[in-house]
């Protein structure tokens, strides 16, 4: 089932077309990676699909129905969760940060506390619960950021390069833990990255975006092994570098 679709979507800013996508869809249960060079339009695509940014032209469909990205669709936006590259935690405890989304939804306090404890445990940061979130290391902060997103039990989890600012051992451990969590929850995930190693490790399918266009989309392994004419120059550089 297609949970999100784009039809003839264009996003133009400062007279520049940042996104030009005739057709695009995200299947329920998929773990879709989005890769492309800097400035390719990956983050713009994430904002448009998650209804954080309205496209200049075209339609965004949720379960086949056209929806608008405006203040009226709060109920729709609350079905999704977004975790960005910077953890952007608030100046309060780890517990309060993870609880925030549920508090905004006016959930019952006991339920919130139970869920927060569960997700902090899941991400191995339960011992940090009472610490101020601004005093955490990069890896710890990103674990809290991901817990804050997943506690919302989103229909779609949007991730915008959440591991890119981490050092390699921290990143490797977190990706491993995160993969297990995603397998457990079967959350539909839209994962933006510029790192093919992360993409290969985490995703089932892959879309390559270059100059605002989706140039190739399919099974992750197949796209990496059989890039087309448009994506080969970008993907082959990675393959040469890491002999994938």
């Amino acid at each position: 089932m297609k949970i999100l679709q784009l039809k003839d979507v264009k996003y133009i800013a400062n007279k520049q077309t940042l996104l030009d996508i005739p057709h695009f869809s995200l299947q329920q249960g998929d773990l879709l990676g989005i890769i492309g060079p800097n400035g390719a339009g990956k983050s713009t695509l994430l904002k448009v699909l998650s209804f954080l940014q309205a496209p200049t032209k075209g339609q965004v469909l949720y379960k086949g129905e056209e929806k608008q990205a405006n203040s009226l669709n709060l109920e729709l936006r609350r079905r999704f969760a977004v975790a960005l590259q910077q953890s952007l935690l608030f100046d309060t405890t780890v517990h309060n940060n993870v609880a925030l989304g549920l508090k905004l939804r006016k959930e019952n306090k006991t339920v919130i506390n139970e869920k927060v404890d569960y997700w902090l445990e899941k991400f191995n940061v339960a011992s940090l619960s009472k610490k101020n979130a601004r005093s955490l290391s990069g890896g710890e902060a990103q674990r809290v950021n991901l817990a804050r997103a997943l506690i919302l039990a989103p229909e779609v989890l949007f991730l915008d390069e959440p591991f890119s600012a981490l050092d390699f051992p921290t990143k490797a451990q977190l990706i491993q833990d995160f993969k297990e969590i995603l397998n457990d929850t079967s959350t539909t995930t839209f994962f933006v990255s510029h790192d093919l190693l992360e993409i290969r490790h985490l995703t089932k399918s892959l879309a390559v975006i270059i100059d605002g266009n989706v140039k190739q989309m399919g099974n992750t392994k197949e796209v990496i092994e059989q890039p087309n004419e448009a994506t080969a120059p970008f993907l082959n550089k990675w393959k040469e570098l890491y002999t994938l």
Partner: peptide
């Protein structure tokens, strides 16, 4: 990005 994160949290 903080503004976007707050919006994304469903505020």
């Amino acid at each position: 990005k903080m503004l976007m994160q707050i919006k994304a949290l469903g505020a």
